[in-house]
């Protein structure tokens, strides 16, 4: 039996609590790939926020005499079919793609977790209703569902969130439910009952923390998913509208000129790839850092 050196309380104030946040950060920092991913994501966020300042050109200015220029010192990644700077458009695209990647994933995660824990723990009729609702969502062609939402509510960013969350929560709920089902048979849940803990306490203080590692993985996996979803919707004309730029839109427009100017489609594709990788690394690192048994 060992006690990690981090827990040497003699160096801290009498019975001060070791903070979970600090423990987690320390464990996270030990993972190189996770750190690298975090740096990349941070850089991306920085670029997205300060796009007007950091980007070398105007993303909307067209110059038809500068179509499909190859990468050069003026245009680092060349220009597209309207002569717009590809790099600038990728930086601006990051704004939409990041938001669309993170916000709807977060919403479906929150709804899905709540529904999943409730469904798995309470069981019975509650379980039946929630799971049939989830089945409906999963059985329905989700692209169609998202398109219906976009058509009826109009194509804007907020409605993309609504559409993606509507599609996404059901999958999360199923995974969380199955975990909850396994967890609630555990002896420590019975011990919590023996302590007089209420059902709400057990759901949120005993079951939920055990689901968190799964949620982080789900989250880091759903970000790329959401980015791809956004590009599908944009591609179909119900998502982000040109001349706005999102990565999915850039790829789908650029692919028409794949042979003339491959960089136009490949560069935003690489951006998606790197972002997805970065988020996965961060997610992996977080999951390990939050797992108490990995801390020694």
């Amino acid at each position: 039996m060992t006690v990690s050196p981090d827990l040497n309380v003699d160096t801290v104030e009498e019975i001060q609590e070791a903070s979970l946040l600090r423990d987690t950060m320390r464990a996270f920092a030990r993972n190189r790939m996770a750190l690298l991913g975090l740096v990349f994501v941070a850089l991306l966020v920085f670029l997205a926020i300060f796009a007007p300042i950091v980007s070398p050109h105007d993303p909307y200015r067209m110059a038809l005499d500068e179509q499909f220029l190859p990468p050069s010192t003026t245009y680092w990644l060349g220009t597209d079919n309207f002569g717009r700077d590809v790099l600038t458009r990728i930086i601006y695209g990051a704004r939409i793609s990041l938001v669309v990647g993170i916000v709807p994933s977060l919403i479906s995660l929150i709804i899905g977790t709540f529904m999943g824990v409730l469904s798995g723990y309470i069981g019975g009729k509650v379980d039946f209703v929630i799971m049939r609702l989830a089945d409906m969502m999963i059985a329905f062609p989700s692209l169609l569902l998202a398109m219906v939402v976009m058509y009826t509510l109009g194509a804007n960013l907020f409605n993309i969130f609504v559409a993606l969350a509507l599609v996404g929560w059901a999958g999360v709920a199923r995974v969380v439910r199955s975990q909850t089902l396994a967890l609630k048979e555990k002896e420590f849940i019975e011990a919590a009952h023996a302590n007089g803990a209420s059902r709400v306490t057990i759901m949120f203080r005993h079951i939920f923390p055990n689901v968190v590692p799964t949620l982080i993985v789900l989250f880091s996996l759903s970000i790329p998913d959401a980015i791809m979803w956004e590009s599908s919707l944009s591609f179909l004309g119900v998502g982000v509208q040109p001349p706005e730029a999102s990565w999915g839109l850039l790829v789908s427009r650029g692919k028409e000129y794949l042979f003339q100017a491959p960089v136009v489609a490949i560069a935003p594709g690489v951006a998606i790839l790197l972002t997805v990788l970065a988020f996965n690394f961060v997610g992996d690192g977080l999951r390990d850092a939050l797992d108490p048994s990995m801390k020694d």
Partner: peptide
């Protein structure tokens, strides 16, 4: 060493 054990996780005991 009860002070140190407060913040331990079950697997550390």
């Amino acid at each position: 060493d009860p002070k140190a054990r407060l913040d331990a996780y079950p697997h550390q005991l």
